[in-house]
Design a protein around this nucleic acid. Structure first.
Length: 872
RNA sequence: GGGGAAGUGGCGAAAUGGCAGACGCACAGGCCUUAGGAGCCUGGGGAGGCAACUCCGUGAGGGUUCGAAUCCCUCCUUCCCCA
């Protein structure tokens, strides 16, 4: 799958588009200056000290604080990063996850966004028409908490934060197309969030039901299953342990898409995310089997191992199971009721813990095992959950750990029905769930595990005892939130017509501004005196509004579409924009959203497709995740630990380009790692040296002793090898080695600047390619150097350099000579040396002969261009 | 308990079957300088040796291979997800 998409990306990089990308640049060129040599262009720039500050020192120094705001202003004024529909050019929709406007852009945002920006810039230089939008996921709890704590209105707090963060985002020098900015809390945005809700409702994909849901007592709201984290089930936002509440809540039927969500065909997503989502969906194949009580009450169970049915020696009903009270015999009633009352007070997680001492009570009733007519006792026990499967299980102690522990505790029989290989017929010491052969199972005896499930399922179906069934762990998405700062759910409750969606022409259902916050835990919308009073859209009689708002993940499930046309008011997006830009070609962001946002947005696109609103099966074709950037102490950054790195301070001190370059340099992007305040000085040094390489005059004396011809070839080889390497690494998101390769090339160029090669066209070619390659990573200094070289504005509209395979080829190589796999000698040989000659040279080597000590080689291994290994 | 990822100098890392440690940080020595917290040059995996050189070395152990940081098996440690 991954290779398929990769190949596609490569193929769709047509040479012709590189020329197309150059066109606008040519238009804006005032005076195309063909710099004949670096020396010459240096002189030109020396005469025009345009951007340079007046210092006592007349030297032209790299001062990022001067050049960065200057270029940012010019780029914005020129709408340099404006992305417009242009069917004559191949499009590339690059998207990075939009931030929540918390009020402070942290280094994690920089780490997510600036490499994404560099990649988008690279694609632009590759000839694509690139759209790289930005916006704000502006609804959510922190705004409301600020309102309660500090008395600031959530809207005021949010929009002030957005204003501040816009400025911070601009300091990155990213190629965001700000004309496409979307803010999810704008009425023009949430009008469509509500419209989508209504569409889902009309298509039966949104429904309300009473159910035990997770409730965060601190944030006073329900949470989706995905927003409850960890073993002890804490709120994803505030870390408070959640409790169960029985409430009428709105859900989206994401479970309708369980099967399709497992299919990633055609997308290039990391294996890790696919695995997380696959496990989250939790498909399990098995069979539903119906047992009956002695009084003919059907009790259906789901099992992944119908082949173990003959080993069922008891049944367990969840304490909440409706049959528990019905089937309990009078003499057991008191005991069972006490147990049920106790069990329902426990949390699911306590109840399910595998290592916990099992508890349960016999309810005084029996069931008949449909496969062998065995009369087996029915128990109720808290390790069976009502919310899981059918709320009832068959107990097969020999082949299930928990059933085994239960049977041991209550002295129930443990008959083996799957014989492990080499089983001696003795009782098992622990539950066995490996491969084996069916035993004690009537006609099925001897059936190996590999065929058993299918055969038994077929047999059950033929006899009407059960049927094959696939179940999923995935639950429907709970989207009701009992809070104010979110998109109101556009539903009206009419005494006659029930839940009625607000008609499209009455959207948006606006949030009222005049609300009060009381720490009662009630939604302010519920406390508002008039807001919820309305009339029924169908009959016009008095009716009330739904006061719950939507989970903010609903807003972010479709934002990639709103960027297409954030001002469009005839629909959620302009179809012309849609048909050109969608789907998203490359999506970047944190992996922490694997089972939340990233699964919701896939569901959303699939649901829209089935409602014929979009044509795509998947919203984002390629996904890449960055790692987490840690504090200098290798701990997670947090204010309480005092290890937070503030990007604003870094920009002020080192400039945005250095921060960008360091974030890309210090580690593999998807790996993250600790910040190092000394490490960034290395890239600062790099940028200073690049500056000097290009701006400062070369030394007067040219080294006449070196042969110019070989120097030119060496220079071009290094340059073209670097272009090849950097291009490949950009394609693969390997940003750290890009910066390393550029540093390496600089080291080589700095040495060569001392030689006469500096007066050759090869030098100009080198410097030209160098600045182009820097441009995606350090856009400001690249633009400044480009201008100083007298090249036409803007570097960011230039094509990416192409490497010349012939120039990059080595003519001499180091041939490694090994004896028995150990390096013993090295020879400089022509790269195109023939195998026979290489072997001869190896055997002729004095060192090799010494290690052979007269023995005849058994084998001589030759690896072209690399080594000869002589084996004795 | 299940699944996944990772483990390489003092540190961040590079090398994905073929010269281990590219690039950078820190450190050491030198140059330049009135000065250096600037810049430039040089050196740094470990052990032995004046040296050429030798041996050892990618969490541990085993295996495959002419050849393994890289592939396979077992184990240890750390992190993530699920239970």
């Amino acid at each position: 799958m991954a290779t398929k998409t990769k190949a596609k990306t490569k193929k769709s990089t047509p040479k012709t588009t590189a020329t197309a990308a150059r066109k606008p640049a040519a238009k804006t060129t005032r005076k195309p200056v063909a710099a004949k040599s670096a020396r010459k262009s240096t002189r030109v720039s020396a005469k025009t000290p345009s951007s340079q500050p007046a210092t006592h020192n007349s030297r032209d120094r790299y001062i990022p604080q001067k050049i960065e705001p200057k270029w940012q202003k010019k780029w914005a004024a020129d709408r340099l990063y404006r992305a417009e529909v242009d069917p004559s050019r191949p499009k590339f929709y690059a998207l990075t996850m939009l931030p929540y406007p918390s009020g402070e852009l942290h280094i994690g945002h920089w780490y997510a966004m600036t490499p994404s920006d560099a990649r988008a810039r690279f694609m632009r230089m590759q000839g694509f028409n690139v759209m790289f939008p930005m916006g704000f996921d502006a609804f959510g709890l922190p705004a409301e908490n600020a309102a309660i704590q500090r008395g600031i209105h959530p809207k005021k707090w949010t929009y002030a934060n957005i204003e501040r963060m816009r400025q911070q985002l601009r300091s990155m020098g990213a190629m965001f197309d700000w004309e496409r900015e979307a803010v999810s809390a704008d009425p023009e945005y949430y009008r469509w969030t509500q419209w989508f809700f209504a569409q889902l409702f009309k298509h039966g994909l949104a429904y309300k039901k009473m159910s035990p849901v997770d409730w965060c007592p601190k944030d006073n709201t329900t949470l989706a299953r995905e927003q409850v984290w960890g073993e002890d089930r804490r709120c994803e936002r505030c870390g408070t342990p959640v409790i169960k509440k029985n409430l009428a809540q709105w859900f989206f039927k994401i479970t309708d898409y369980a099967e399709e969500l497992l299919d990633f065909d055609g997308t290039d997503w990391p294996e890790r995310v696919r695995l997380l989502q696959t496990n989250w969906v939790g498909r399990s194949e098995g069979a539903e089997v119906t047992f009956h009580s002695e009084h003919e009450d059907p009790i259906t169970v789901f099992t992944t191992r119908p082949d173990t049915l003959w080993g069922a020696t008891f049944m367990v009903l969840a304490p909440e199971h409706p049959l528990v009270l019905k089937l309990t015999s009078p003499d057991r009633k008191a005991e069972v009721e006490t147990y049920v009352a106790e069990a329902t007070r426990q949390s699911d997680i306590q109840r399910e813990a595998a290592d916990r001492e099992k508890s349960g009570v016999f309810i005084g009733a029996y069931a008949i095992n449909p496969v062998n007519g065995a009369r087996i006792p029915i128990w109720t026990a808290d390790y069976v959950l009502m919310t899981y499967g059918t709320g009832a299980i068959m107990g097969v102690p020999a082949h299930d750990e928990r059933d085994f522990a239960f049977a041991r505790k209550f002295s129930l029989p443990i008959p083996v029905v799957i014989a492990p290989p080499g089983w001696d017929g003795h009782p098992l010491k622990e539950a066995y769930h490996g491969e084996g052969v069916m035993v004690n199972s009537g006609a099925f005896d001897g059936t190996p595990t590999s065929e058993a499930v299918a055969k038994v399922t077929k047999w059950l179906e033929e006899r009407g005892l059960g049927k094959g069934k696939v179940t999923y762990r995935l639950r429907d998405w709970l989207i009701s939130r009992q809070r104010y700062w979110g998109a109101p759910i556009p539903i009206v409750y009419c005494p006659t017509h029930g839940a009625v969606p607000v008609p499209d022409d009455q959207l948006p259902v606006l949030l009222p501004d005049d609300v009060e916050w009381k720490p009662t835990g009630e939604s302010p919308l519920k406390l508002h005196p008039t807001w919820s009073k309305t009339t029924c859209p169908i009959c016009g009689e008095p009716a009330t509004r739904e006061t719950d708002t939507m989970d903010t993940f609903m807003c972010s499930s479709w934002y990639q579409y709103r960027y297409l046309s954030p001002d469009y008011d005839k629909g959620p997006w302009d179809p012309k924009e849609y048909s050109y830009w969608m789907p998203v070609d490359c999506y970047t962001g944190g992996i922490e959203h694997a089972t939340m946002h990233l699964i919701y947005t896939r569901f959303f696109t699939k649901a829209l497709r089935d409602m014929r609103i979009v044509r795509d099966d998947e919203p984002m074709m390629q996904l890449r995740n960055q790692g987490i950037i840690l504090g200098e102490d290798s701990d997670k950054m947090s204010k309480s630990k005092g290890n937070v790195v503030a990007p604003d301070d870094l920009v002020k001190h080192y400039g945005a380009d250095a921060v960008r370059a360091y974030l890309m340099f210090f580690s593999q992007w998807d790996q993250g790692g600790p910040w190092n305040s000394k490490g960034i000085e290395g890239v600062v040094r790099w940028l200073n040296r690049v500056w000097k390489l290009i701006v400062e005059k070369p030394p007067k004396r040219a080294n006449v002793e070196t042969s110019e011809r070989s120097n030119v070839a060496d220079l071009r080889r290094k340059v073209h090898q670097t272009v090849r390497r950097v291009t490949r690494d950009f394609e693969n998101f390997e940003f750290n080695t890009i910066v390393a390769a550029l540093m390496e090339l600089l080291n080589a160029l700095a040495k060569m600047k001392e030689t006469s090669v500096v007066n050759t066209p090869a030098w100009d070619e080198a410097v030209d390619a160098y600045v182009r390659m820097m441009a995606p990573i350090t856009p400001h200094v690249a633009e400044e150097l480009w201008a100083k070289m007298g090249k036409p504005y803007s570097i960011h509209q230039q094509p990416w350099p192409k490497h010349d395979e012939a120039a990059a080829a080595e003519d001499m190589i180091t041939l490694v000579l090994q004896v028995n796999g150990k390096v013993r000698d090295r020879l400089q040989v022509p790269a195109d040396i023939a195998e026979a000659e290489a072997k001869d040279k190896a055997l002729a080597s004095e060192t090799v002969r010494r290690y052979l000590s007269g023995k005849t080689p058994k084998q001589v291994v030759y690896v072209a261009g690399r080594l000869v290994n002589v084996v004795v």
